[in-house]
Design a protein around this nucleic acid. Structure first.
Lengths: 211, 211
DNA sequence: CCAGGATGACTAATCATGTTAGGTACAACA
DNA sequence: TGTTGTACCTAACATGATTAGTCATCCTGG
């Protein structure tokens, strides 16, 4: 019993240090850019020398990997949060999902670059870190299926449109609203297209069988 | 007279070497990735040592800058090429432009990353190199205006949609057609939305006053 | 035809960065 | 109380961009 308690203390401290390292990395990434994060700077911020970080982390890319997992996990939580009192029609749902994802993405350039662009030279996320990203897409698919939207192409198109708006916003009008304003319009035109193809509009106007 | 002729020879050789350097950089970028381009490798390929490159180029970023300008200039030429026998309705035009830009972008990942993503850490294109990129957009604007599409929002949306499809294709299905197949559909839904908002469909069905 | 300067390449060296090797101090535990 | 493992350190290395300084070669002007 005592043994385990002590062990926990050690593991706890270890975990704390690890988190401090990641926090420092995020802070630096926000300040000077994702690719400008340097081990020496991280170390300085947590009161160490660069090589000491290797006690807690396998490599610099492992730090990026952990950050990648963190970011997508956070995103997953935000998107999951929408499953509380969900809208009951497709249009409102897709609007809500689009806006939520958009705002989440746009609120941190460094995070978006890490999550969605290959900004970091040698970095490739590990399968484990990639999992929450897949889950986010899975949740979206599931939600859309609820309204009868199941085809891969339909989902692909929605994803591309929302992603395109996010990228345009961050690339050309960071901090602004120029593309954000187009979100609802984009969703509406997408939903209209879906309606068109379905022929019957009766579809996706209410269906109750989530999760 | 003689003087100028000799001068030309020198300048010619200089220009040739510079082009060789850029070509080498492109080749390496295609093979191992844009960010993995190294001055030593470029030098080796043109039969030099790394520091000698500085005789022809200001810095590594200057190489990226020149490549950026090259890429967008090439893109501009391709897009300008469409202005020979242009379609006479908006839908066909936007389909053509979208497909052309898409295919151009997708045909080289390294080039697309350089042109549209901030994949290279410290690199920011110079205003001069940026100019052809602006021109591409300007040409699009002009073409769309031909059909009465002038609002900033309308153009923004089109750009975001096409860009989103390109990004999705390159990120998730490189070499495939999964998002490429959605191009026409996306354009159609966009044009339909435009029609809707214009109220009158009479617009953009033919207008003759290009350039 | 030859001296002198420009040109273009080279080697050596500097600086930044990730990473490895090899210690050392201290706390926990037997 | 001695042992051991943990977390940190310094020194060192590899790679990469960049600078400084040198040298050969080639053109040009006398």
């Amino acid at each position: 019993m005592l043994g385990t308690t002590k062990r926990d203390r050690a593991a706890e401290r270890r975990e704390t240090t690890r988190r401090e390292i990641l926090d420092a990395a995020w802070a630096i990434a926000s300040e000077v850019g994702l690719a400008q994060v340097t081990l020496r700077d991280i170390a300085a911020r947590v009161g160490m020398r660069a090589p000491s970080l290797y006690t807690h982390v396998d490599s610099k890319n492992a730090i990026y990997d952990a950050m990648f997992a963190q970011a997508w996990t956070e995103c997953l939580e935000v998107m999951r949060g929408l499953e509380q009192n969900p809208p009951n029609d497709l249009r409102a749902t897709l609007r809500l999902y689009a806006r939520t994802f958009f705002d989440f993405s746009v609120s941190s350039l460094a995070r978006h670059q890490l999550m969605n662009q290959r900004t970091v030279p040698g970095f490739e996320p590990s399968p484990e870190s990639y999992a929450p990203a897949v889950e986010v897409l899975g949740a979206l698919r599931h939600r859309m299926a609820t309204f009868g939207v199941t085809s891969e192409a339909d989902v692909d198109l929605y994803v591309a449109i929302v992603g395109g708006l996010v990228d345009a916003q961050l690339a050309n009008d960071q901090g602004g609203e120029r593309w954000r304003r187009l979100l609802d319009r984009a969703v509406d035109m997408y939903v209209h297209d879906l309606d068109q193809r379905a022929g019957a509009t009766s579809l996706h106007t209410t269906t109750e069988d989530e999760r």
